[in-house]
């Protein structure tokens, strides 16, 4: 039996990333990298040219994602990814705009923007890596930290009710709402693809391990252990009641429910057309159609 060493000089996804920016800043076991790769693959498979994709983030560990992608990308101020992306989506409707940011950035300091962009049904994809804490500043309690989970600013456990993000997104008007984990990469990529195909405000929550900030204080030994937890506790149920999707890591009997929960149609935000009287809207729609074909 012969043995040989196989060394890959190149990765099939190399052209999608800025190799000169690597190694990345994320800790070993972090879930952001695999989820970023799923997003990159979805872009390739989306049949939308890479040059028409735009990725926008706020501040935090996930906020670093656009910096590693070889595409038009923007690292905005804390919490402000959605208003930034909203402006791009409105002035350049031919672009496929995705906000790729973390739970702290999108739902604490940026929470107001999320609910209003969803309400208006702006043509955006929002991908939220939820690692249940403020990772970049070192593991503080945030608006998604599960009840009872420990953080550096909640050393004996969080006592504030966290957001149920799919429920929030659906209630505020998102037309596509999904939750997967960094273990469920095929389903995650499919959800990203669906979000890219769909016009309007789409939301994909990605549960991801943060072994250093969240796992360590919560007796989750390492990333593998959190991935095992996902494998054992996650159930896929797209028809689950949205108000039942809270995550409680203390209750070992309680499943973590995943799926594509919402896929509906609503008028997509378009101020140029919507502000005008009904007759002119049709003209605009015809003009817009012509531009797209041309």
């Amino acid at each position: 039996m012969s043995t040989s060493t196989f060394i890959a000089e190149r990765h099939p996804s190399d052209p999608l990333f800025r190799a000169d920016r690597l190694p990345h800043i994320w800790c070993p076991g972090c879930g952001i990298g695999p989820a970023m790769h799923a997003y990159a693959q979805a872009m390739v498979e989306s049949e939308i040219p890479l040059a028409r994709h735009v990725c926008v983030s706020g501040i935090g560990c996930t906020g670093r994602v656009p910096g590693y992608l070889n595409m038009d990308s923007y690292h905005t101020t804390h919490g402000r990814a959605i208003p930034f992306a909203t402006a791009i989506a409105i002035v350049k409707p031919e672009l496929e705009v995705t906000v790729y940011s973390g739970d702290g950035d999108l739902f604490a300091i940026g929470g107001n923007h999320f609910i209003h962009a969803a309400r208006r049904n702006v043509d955006l994809n929002v991908i939220c890596i939820n690692n249940f804490n403020y990772g970049m500043t070192g593991g503080q309690v945030g608006p998604t930290t599960p009840m009872g989970a420990r953080a550096t600013t909640a050393p004996f456990g969080n006592y504030e009710q966290p957001f149920n993000l799919p429920y929030l997104a659906a209630a505020t008007g998102a037309v596509f709402v999904a939750r997967w984990t960094s273990l469920h990469l095929r389903q995650l990529k499919q959800a990203f693809l669906r979000a890219m195909k769909k016009r309007g405000f789409t939301f994909v929550e990605v549960l991801a391990p943060c072994p250093v900030g969240f796992g360590r204080p919560n007796d989750i030994g390492d990333a593998m252990e959190e991935m095992t937890l996902y494998r054992e506790r996650c159930v896929v149920d797209a028809s689950a009641r949205l108000d039942s999707l809270d995550i409680d890591l203390r209750d070992k009997e309680r499943p973590i429910t995943l799926g594509n929960f919402v896929d509906i149609e609503r008028p997509v935000f378009d101020p140029l057309a919507m502000m005008r009287p009904a007759g002119e809207r049709e003209n605009h729609a015809a003009l817009a159609g012509k531009t797209q074909e041309g």
Binding site: A108, I109, T137, G138, Q140, T152, T153, A154
Partner: peptide
């Protein structure tokens, strides 16, 4: 509210 390089102050007080 945390922000680098201040966060250690509020972490200490939280503890």
């Amino acid at each position: 509210f945390p922000i680098t390089p201040q966060t250690e102050i509020i972490e200490t007080l939280a503890q």
